[in-house]
Design a protein around this nucleic acid. Structure first.
Lengths: 346, 346
DNA sequence: TGTCGGAGTTGAAAGGTTTCAGGTCGCCAG
DNA sequence: CTGGCGACCTGAAACCTTTCAACTCCGACA
């Protein structure tokens, strides 16, 4: 097979210079065709465009960026690209970026600090115009350093103590409260909180919110049973379910509030396979309202977070920071919402 | 608040030149510290490093790329970032890329052709060293054009007619076959195939494989009931379930093979909520073996694809194409595997 | 003493784009 | 015929890095 692609003809990709030569115009004119076509006469423009097509010209973004000093690109460093919650957030960011004519790169830190640091370094070197991140550690000095080096940054779905950048969060304490209030409404007076590890701020907040509601209802604290898990996975939900089932009937809670939907789905699975009815024997509320919650064997009640709005708001804050010289950092907090389904409504 | 970040001091980010000046050395030496530290004496190196730290120097990747002509970056254009299948594929790619010291950018075409085209153009301009993609249309001339312009490309999880790039697929026809063979083993002689639209090659293949097995078992074709859906979603699975339930008992299949797990989960939900027992009244096999399959109310049997290996293999092919001048394009095909769980085993 | 080699350092050139001050040309008003 | 204007086009300079041939020392060796 003979080599005949434009790019292979001479081992070098064609540049504006080659285009200019072939079209018998100057460099500047080619650039004008690219960036201000209205300033070029129709005939010339046509000649240049044909030359580009003939040569298979692809603009070199590095060179443009070098010259222009900006990249029109954002990046989002995700905490876990396999978690539906974060992919939905990413989608929100993407939509906002697309509307503002910005490219978006997604990176995945996979919950690993060093990987996150590598991505951060690389993205700064790429001179992205702005950075969104759900960090492994929201209080890491790395984040402040990024800002100091001149890259605007917005923290997504994590509260942080720093005031040198914007953040977007959801009120987890309120989320815990409304979950419990819903169960109280349904008449439950013995409830389990299932989730962990409590080193994660969000999980603490959800539990604290639950306690607030519980106390205000005047119920004894001992009847809000805390079941600590190692992680938030389906597997851990299963284990927790077995633990509940092992309790003597008098002590067994009639409802469970799970710190996320994966745990709730595990609990649900255990309940059904051991012959319990949901919600008659045990009612279940999850958290996040992922797509699989509605599609579970018993549709799952869940605390919904405005995932996509979260992403969109974060991107909008970043766009403001980049374009508006009077930008002031903000901490935006969204409100969660309870979605009641069969798993609590019977 | 006074502006005091290094970057803000003069509105321009420090360059190697600034570093060189401050460290009292030449440009070349700074570059050596960056790229060949062993060639620089310890004292000088230290001085340069201190200068970098003082100034908050961040290397400009655009300039480096421009000079070097390569970016050490791959990109994967995903078809649907919210589908767990693709995020797992992405993870496989990521691991391979990380091992080869390449950065990876993820983009999401979201199943939209124009968005895909925009990403493609942008990535070519960025001079990524190689491109992985699960395309909206595997036979689009766009892909060939990318290759022609000089960017190596590997198609992931889609068969294509072109031989100008590598591809990695899973044998869908075999997948269909083993699903049906499993159901035949369990004694089923009336089975539904649920999925669509059949314009998608993969779905056709899965159905064709199912037919192969069915025919070879000597069963009448009419007893392999085809239920066409609009898309592969939980919702469509629900609808299909209702359709099956509406059939007279004599005609009703005792098992269903769903073209993906989302459909299977929908069907499962419908079956359970309408009081059927799974698998006694209806056995169910899904496809993809996503994480939620094992965690379903009745753990779901499913045809597993080696998602992560798929990604890894694709990345490795691309790495070979980039580095090895004698590279030859390959079409790699993986073999699926049946994971039998309660939904077919009772 | 003179030569050689090696370690460390230098600085100009190159890479592809955009910008912008300046040029040419044709045409119209005076 | 002259001056001036607008439309269109030109090409050098700048952006920041890496590379590499050339240079300077300095100690070793004959």
């Amino acid at each position: 097979m003979s080599i005949s692609t434009p790019a292979a003809r001479n081992g070098r990709r064609p540049s504006v210079k080659d285009v200019a030569e072939r079209a018998q115009v100057s460099l500047g004119t080619v650039s004008n065709v690219l960036n201000r076509p209205d300033r070029v006469s129709a005939g010339t423009r046509e000649r240049v465009e044909r030359a580009m097509a003939d040569l298979g010209f692809v603009l070199n973004e590095s060179a443009r960026q070098l010259r222009m000093g900006r990249s029109n690109t954002f990046a989002y460093v995700m905490l876990d690209a396999t978690n539906p919650f974060f992919t939905d957030v990413a989608r929100g960011i993407e939509l906002a970026a697309e509307k503002a004519d910005l490219s978006l790169f997604l990176c995945n830190s996979d919950g690993r600090g060093p990987r996150e640091a590598a991505h951060l370094a690389h993205l700064q070197q790429h001179r992205v115009d702005g950075l969104l991140i759900t960090p492994v550690d929201p209080d890491s000095p790395e984040l402040a350093r990024v800002v100091q080096h001149g890259t605007p940054l917005v923290v997504v779905d994590r509260a942080t103590t720093s005031r040198s950048f914007c953040s977007v969060t959801v009120d987890d304490r309120l989320g815990g409260r409304i979950a419990i209030e819903h169960l109280l409404d349904q008449g439950h007076t013995k409830v389990a909180f299932i989730g962990g590890p409590s080193s994660i701020g969000q999980i603490r907040d959800r539990f604290d919110g639950a306690c607030d509601a519980w106390r205000e209802a005047g119920l004894p604290e001992t009847d809000l049973l805390r079941v600590e898990t190692e992680t938030l996975s389906v597997q851990e939900g299963l284990v927790a379910g077995e633990r509940l089932a092992g309790l003597p009937r008098r002590k067994r809670p009639t409802a469970a509030f799970c710190a996320n939907d994966l745990v709730a789905l595990g609990l649900l699975q255990q309940a059904i396979s051991s012959g319990q009815r949901v919600p008659e024997d045990i009612a279940i509320v999850g958290y996040d309202d992922i797509a699989f919650a509605a599609g579970a064997a018993v549709p799952l009640s869940s605390v919904r977070q405005p995932r996509q709005n979260l992403g969109r708001a974060a991107a909008d804050l970043l766009i403001d920071e980049v374009n508006n010289p009077e930008h002031e950092h903000q901490q935006v907090e969204f409100t969660p919402e309870l979605i009641a389904r069969t798993s609590t409504l019977g």
